[in-house]
Design a protein around this nucleic acid. Sequence first.
DNA 1: GGGCGCATGTAATGAGTTACATGATTGA
DNA 2: TCAATCATGTAACTCATTACATGCGCCC
Lengths: 188, 188
Amino acid sequence: MKDKLLLLGVLKQSEMHGYQLYDFIEQNLASCTTLKKPSAYFLLSKMEQEGLVQVVEQRIGNRPPRKVYRLTQAGERLFQQLLQENLSQFTPTVFPGDIGIAFLDQIPIEQGVRLLRKRLQKMQVHLAHLETIPPHRGSASLLIKHQIQHLHNEIQWLREVIADLQEAGNLPQAQKDNEFSHQDSSSN
Amino acid sequence: MKDKLLLLGVLKQSEMHGYQLYDFIEQNLASCTTLKKPSAYFLLSKMEQEGLVQVVEQRIGNRPPRKVYRLTQAGERLFQQLLQENLSQFTPTVFPGDIGIAFLDQIPIEQGVRLLRKRLQKMQVHLAHLETIPPHRGSASLLIKHQIQHLHNEIQWLREVIADLQEAGNLPQAQKDNEFSHQDSSSN
DNA sequence: GGGCGCATGTAATGAGTTACATGATTGA
DNA sequence: TCAATCATGTAACTCATTACATGCGCCC
């Protein structure tokens, strides 16, 4: 239902056809949804059936016809309702990446460090990418700021996790740094 | 597939029956997944068919029989593989709550502020709850720390959004503040 | 004796993805 | 002429959720 709000909101600001709409979302609102193209088209035709949007077919020369969508009053009402719900709600963030963290003790420390470094690097690349995005207008810039601030925070946390892990590896057995020469009781 | 890793990991640490497993996840790993009970049972029986886990039926008195699951070698191998993937991957966080933020300019500022305050309050309640959780052992404490740190960050961000919004409302029409007398940035 | 916790599931439903299908225009 | 972009969709599939079904034990 989140995505319905998203589509309604974008269409409220200006009418669009599906392709354009998806494009817009991908470029400006990727941080709030993972909606894929067929899902967007599907949702749009469903919303048409529900009377939330009106469709006008548009032909330009011989190019593929477009279906231009615009909000109806019912759509407008639903938008207001969903918007209020969304703004007042709070849904705790779920971190699938924490599953691996929870089982860090199941693999050798060096391996854990290596893998997490890989993750860290990807995060840094992503952050760098976010920071190149030119400032959007309006609320959209809030979203980018949100992403950046969040990612900073995540990077910091991951750094701490890696540091802890390395520390834990250095205390117990003062020596361990001649490669993986042996493999004690792993198993289970 | 995330949840498969989760189940395998928990079962690797100690064999369990389904009910117990779900309980454990709910209490200790709620921050990495939203897996529901029937899904857990379903996944377990699927994993049995795939030869990832072994089942032993256990009866105690007349109580409902339990199916105790334990990892097979195939399960062990898959666990290692999924764990490595999970640790080295990075998936950008998606914030469904940002959809509403993106359309903040579609409603009156006071209303926006009011709704976001509601959201903020829920976040604070949740944070307070997280902070009462006694320290877990091992990696689990990392997860809680992660949640807390993240939530702090989210609260801070939301405070800024609200402040910005109010500012934007105060410039155009200098008076507007005879409702909530004030609310300084206290604490965090 | 009534309700909650233990213990396991099924069935219906729905949401969303991937892969596929089509066909025109534009630029290299 | 070949690939990419524009433009829309369908069909098959996976995945997960909700609601429902069952039944014993334990405590009040």
